[in-house]
C-alpha cells in the first residue's frame, strides 16, 4: 500500500476556504468540515449557518464562557457574531431546502463518479440509523463540497464507481477535496483539478476506483 500523507486536514480546509466566494452563506458539516471556518482568508466575509438555528456562527468561546444554549449542529459550544440571528428549525431548513445557502461542506464515506454521496450510514445490520440534516442539505444546497481522506484507514478507495453504502443523495457532489487531490464532478466524469506534489497520476488513479481524467 502506498503510504502518502498528502495535505494536512487544515491544508485541505484552506483550499475549500479559498474556493468559497466572498459574501457566501455556508453550512459546515460536523467534524472535518468545521476546520474550514478557521481557514477563511483575511478580508473575506462568509456567513456560517448551523441548521439548529443560527446564521452568523462565530469562533468557539474561550474556556469557561460556554453557553449550553448556544451550540452548533455538532452540539459544540459556539459564539454568535455581531449581526447574527436565531430562528426555528422550519425556517432553518427553508434556508437549506429553499436554495438560500450557497455552499455546504460535508464529510463522506463514499462518493461516486456521478457525484452520488454516501455519508450517513454504513448499512450495518444492527447499527441504529441516524440521518440528521444531511439529506436536506444535499437536496437543497447548490454547491456541495466534500472534505475527506482519499482512502479509508484500511486502504479502500472512497471515490468509487458506485456507492455500496446507502445514499444520502444522488448526483449532488460538486467537488471532492482529499489529502491527495482536488477533483471536480463534471458531466463527463471526475476531473482532477489539482494533485498533491508527492503524487503522480498513475498512483492517484490506483487509489481511486472511479476513473479520473486530468485537467492539463
Amino acid at each position: 500500500m502506498v503510504n502518502i500523507k498528502g495535505w494536512s486536514n487544515d491544508e485541505i480546509a484552506r483550499k475549500i476556504a479559498i474556493d468559497i466566494p466572498d459574501g457566501s452563506y455556508v453550512n459546515l458539516g460536523i467534524g472535518l468540515p468545521e476546520l474550514v471556518a478557521a481557514n477563511i482568508p483575511e478580508g473575506k466575509e462568509i456567513i456560517f449557518h448551523t441548521e439548529n438555528g443560527l446564521l452568523g456562527v462565530g469562533p468557539p468561546p474561550p474556556p469557561g464562557q460556554e453557553d449550553d444554549e448556544l451550540i452548533n449542529a455538532g452540539k459544540k459550544p459556539v459564539t454568535a457574531i455581531p449581526g447574527a440571528c436565531f430562528f426555528h428549525h422550519a425556517d432553518s431548513f427553508a434556508m437549506i431546502r429553499g436554495g438560500h445557502i450557497d455552499y455546504c461542506v460535508l464529510g463522506a464515506f463514499q462518493v461516486s463518479e456521478s457525484g452520488d454521496l454516501a455519508n450517513w450510514s454504513t448499512g450495518e445490520l444492527n447499527a441504529i440509523p441516524a440521518v440528521g440534516g444531511a439529506m436536506d442539505l444535499v437536496a437543497g444546497v447548490p454547491n456541495i463540497f466534500i472534505i475527506m481522506q482519499h482512502i479509508t484507514k484500511t486502504g479502500q478507495p472512497k471515490i468509487v464507481r458506485q456507492c455500496t453504502y446507502p445514499l444520502t443523495g444522488r448526483q449532488v457532489v460538486k467537488t471532492i477535496y482529499t489529502n491527495l487531490a482536488v477533483i471536480d464532478v463534471t458531466p463527463h466524469g471526475l476531473e482532477v483539478r489539482e494533485i498533491h506534489s508527492g503524487m503522480d497520476r498513475e498512483t492517484l488513479q490506483n487509489l481511486t476506483e472511479a476513473s479520473l481524467s486530468f485537467r492539463s
Partner: peptide, 25 residues
Amino acid sequence: PQGTLAERIRAGGAGIPAFYTPTTI
C-alpha cells in the same frame, strides 16, 4: 431527516396535511 421532521411539524401546525419535498430522493 431533520428538515423533513421540522417541516412535517410546521405543516401539522399550519393545517397542511402533506407536502412534497426533494429530501431523500
